[in-house]
């Protein structure tokens, strides 16, 4: 009922202390919302994608982008229409369709969205979830809260997995003759029952997850111990230094 986000590898991010990586992820996310230039924003996004490709491989990086693409298109297409004021870029007669400010805002929003996605992916793809949890607990987050955070980040891919399985199932259940290429409208229409089914599967699995957690002892009064530890990470200080330095340097270079 949960899907692993970890992709085995031996890049430098895999050796970095999870506590420092959590800090770096948070600082990068904050940095993306500071007053920085658009060029700076996209340079950071490119840097994140490059770091991701080096550590988890180009294929994984590409898959991540593909997974957010529909939402990204939706945001970039509809955002400019919401901003009415400013210099007109495209207009039909006297009606302004897209303004320069709207286009810039859409570009900024898209950049932030890609940036946050890759920052999170870099953490969760290069760190086993147990280590993320230990890292969160090191920051004094209670066990239950850490579990909720890690479950949430594994539950989202589970919904994506369910979606793929349902798509496969539906593909095997297609009736009639082979159709030629389906129109975009038909494809979108076909997507609806699959999406609904994926959500139903996800919702249906919640009580089973809760049931299994309790059955495995979640809720017991004993002080919970941990099978894993973060002792194997040897350069904690250096890793923290890097985590603080990089976002600060980026901010100094790209501040508006």
């Amino acid at each position: 009922m949960t899907t692993n986000t970890f992709v085995a590898g031996d890049g430098f991010l895999y050796r970095m202390d999870p506590r420092a990586k959590i800090m770096a992820m948070l600082l990068v996310c904050v940095f993306l919302f500071l007053g920085i230039t658009l060029e700076g924003l996209y340079a950071t996004v490119v840097l994140l994608i490059l770091v991701g490709s080096v550590n988890t491989g180009i294929q994984h990086t590409g898959r991540t982008f593909k997974s957010i693409l529909p939402m990204l298109i939706f945001m970039v297409l509809f955002m400019p229409f919401n901003v009415r004021g400013g210099e007109s870029l495209i207009s039909i007669g006297s009606f302004t369709l897209i303004t320069r400010e709207g286009a810039l805002q859409a570009a900024r929003l898209g950049g932030r969205f890609i940036g946050i996605t890759y920052a999170c992916t870099l953490l969760f793809a290069t760190t086993p979830m147990t280590d993320v949890m230990l890292g969160l607990r090191w920051y004094r987050l209670p066990y239950k809260a850490s579990l909720v955070v890690t479950l949430a980040f594994t539950y989202i891919p589970f919904i994506a997995d369910s979606f793929i399985q349902i798509t496969e199932s539906h593909r095997l259940r297609e009736g009639g003759d082979l159709e030629k290429k389906r129109s975009v409208f038909k494809r979108l229409k076909d997507l609806l029952p699959t999406l609904t089914s994926a959500l139903v599967v996800a919702l249906r699995s919640i009580p089973y997850l809760a049931m299994s957690l309790e059955q495995r002892g979640f809720g017991r009064k004993e002080k919970r111990t941990s099978y894993h530890s973060l002792d194997s990470y040897r350069h904690t200080f250096t890793d923290f230094l890097i985590s603080f330095t990089i976002p600060i340097v980026l901010w100094l270079i790209f501040k508006a």
Binding site: N4, Y208, L209, S212, L213, R224, Y227, H228, S229
Partner: peptide
């Protein structure tokens, strides 16, 4: 329907952690 952890070893370790066993025993 019974899996809660993300790897085979963590699945086995999860209830043992709940029992408060030492790391060596787990």
């Amino acid at each position: 329907e019974q899996f809660v952890a993300l790897s085979v070893e963590d699945e086995i370790a999860f209830p043992l952690e709940a029992l408060g066993l030492t790391r060596v025993e787990i």
